Computed example of a mutant assay.
Amino acid sequence: MSEPVTLGAMSPGQRARIVEIAAEAGGSDLHLRLYEMGFDEGVEVEILHRGPIGGDPIAVQVGGMVVAMRRRDAALVTVSPVVAPLAGGAREAAE
């Protein structure tokens, strides 16, 4: 299992599973909004795109929805990167 990082530290194309959303999450309002958009522990997310200026905003796919987030908000979401399986069952042979 990979070490947890923040959603804001991930690169486009990376997938991860949400571990935790900081309780203070910019105030309870932001935490509730993230939850309503599908951000919850155990949910898999993927970084699709980063904005050209300073990496803001970040496009994140969560479930069937794409959400644009500020990096400072994404930094409140702790995730564990998901390692993609190797093609043709090579992962089992490598282990």
Rank of each mutant, 00 (worst) to 15 (best):
R17G: 14
E92Y: 09
R91L: 14
A75R: 13
A87M: 11
R91C: 13
S80A: 15
M10W: 03
M69K: 03
E95C: 02
A75I: 10
A23K: 01
L7G: 05
A22E: 08
G88D: 13
F39W: 01
A9L: 07
V79K: 10
R71F: 07
A25V: 11
R70W: 04
V19W: 08
V45Y: 00
V60F: 01
T78V: 11
G38N: 03
G27Y: 02
R50V: 09
A90Q: 15
E44R: 14
E92L: 11
D29V: 05
E92D: 03
L32P: 08
S2V: 04
Q14S: 08
V83D: 01
A22R: 00
L34F: 04
A93W: 15
A84C: 00
G51I: 00
H31Y: 11
R71I: 12
A59I: 13
V83F: 08
I47L: 15
M10T: 05
R91K: 08
L34G: 04
A93R: 15
A87W: 06
T78A: 13
L7C: 01
E36T: 08
P57F: 00
G51Q: 00
V19G: 10
R50T: 12
G55T: 03
E92T: 02
A94G: 13
Y35C: 09
G89H: 08
R71S: 15
G42M: 02
G55P: 09
L34Q: 05
R33L: 04
L30K: 02
E44K: 15
L32I: 12
L76H: 07
R17Y: 12
E46R: 14
G13Q: 02
L30C: 00
P52H: 09
G64A: 04
R70Y: 07
P57M: 02
E3M: 00
P85H: 01
M65V: 13
A93N: 13
G63P: 02
R33D: 06
